[in-house]
């Protein structure tokens, strides 16, 4: 039983990171009907920026992460601005544009930080908590808490603010939203910036648990994408549930199937999606793609 809970804790910690990634995917998709394939590369950019602020500029981790989130949000705005002309032509062109943007970000990261990765020391040096023999690294609790607060704030933003309501309206019917005076382009830009910020937050939080490298966004991006689909692409609660689900499935698969864990995780994922193609919280409002 102790082993079960230990594996669960590990799965939830990484699941919280996947949830943040999935939230970014879903937010852009529900607003623009676009799958942002640059999301993993944006995550990597955020992780590098946070690690640079933390290790090179010697900023406290609690300052480095928000700074990286803001800077990466600007990167998201730039990507949206570059891709905006394609939106009126064909969303598929925009999708290909995001693949290109991801490639450019990886190349720029190699130019700036070289292809060698870097380890990021944990900002929390405390010994792990021992709860009935289950060891819980304190930093993992910090990650789960930050992810939870972020999800609550994002939900409040979408439901309680004028800008959030405008984004919801654009998601449901962009023509009607335009007719009532909502600037669709601005909504898209805000969605891209917030999505990039969420990716940066996920990457920054994951860096002390993992290893920052130009390719770190590849595997994390795939996990986050799978989480978004599992929860219901475009759904905010779905992203959270999907992220935690992929994290926990991956963690148990790693323990029970060892070298075949990736295979097992994605077989389980495929079966779940076959049973419920729209994911756990199939989003009905998204129909722009």
């Amino acid at each position: 039983m102790q082993s079960f809970f230990q594996t669960l804790v590990s799965g939830l910690s990484f699941g919280a990171v996947y949830s943040l990634i999935a939230l970014g995917f879903s937010l852009v998709y529900r607003t623009m009907g676009l799958v942002n394939f640059a999301h993993g590369a944006v995550l990597m950019t955020g992780a590098y920026l946070a690690s640079t602020f933390y290790l090179s500029a010697r900023l406290p981790f609690a300052v480095a992460v928000p700074a990286a989130v803001l800077a990466t949000g600007v990167v998201g705005l730039l990507i949206e601005r570059v891709l905006r002309p394609l939106e009126s032509k064909d969303v598929d062109l925009m999708l290909i544009g995001t693949i290109g943007a991801g490639t450019v970000l990886e190349a720029v990261a190699i130019l700036i930080w070289t292809s060698s990765g870097r380890g990021v020391p944990s900002p929390v040096r405390a010994a792990p908590l021992d709860v009935g023999g289950v060891r819980i690294p304190v930093y993992n609790l910090v990650v789960i808490a930050v992810a939870a607060v972020t999800m609550v704030l994002l939900t409040l933003f979408l439901q309680r603010t004028k800008r959030g309501a405008a984004m919801q309206a654009v998601a449901m019917d962009p023509e009607a939203a335009t007719a009532v005076g909502i600037h669709v382009g601005r909504s898209n830009a805000v969605a891209f910036a917030i999505g990039a910020g969420l990716a940066a937050l996920a990457g920054s939080l994951a860096s002390p648990m993992l290893f920052v490298s130009p390719t770190m966004g590849d595997s994390l991006g795939i996990q986050g994408f799978a989480a978004a689909i599992l929860g219901g692409f475009g759904s905010i609660p779905g992203a959270i549930v999907g992220g935690l689900g992929i994290g926990v499935i991956g963690s148990f698969a790693a323990q029970w199937f060892q070298g075949y864990s990736d295979l097992v995780t994605f077989v389980v994922f495929t079966v779940l999606v076959m049973v419920r193609p729209t994911g756990v919280f199939g989003e009905k409002t998204v129909n722009r793609a």
Binding site: S3, T7, S10, L210, S251, A254, G259
Partner: peptide, 20 residues
């Protein structure tokens, strides 16, 4: 004797087994 995929970054599930 635990085995992980070469691209795995979260080794804690296998480490949990080893720790036990």
């Amino acid at each position: 004797a635990e085995v992980v995929p070469a691209d795995q970054t979260n080794m804690t599930p296998q480490l949990n087994t080893i720790r036990s």
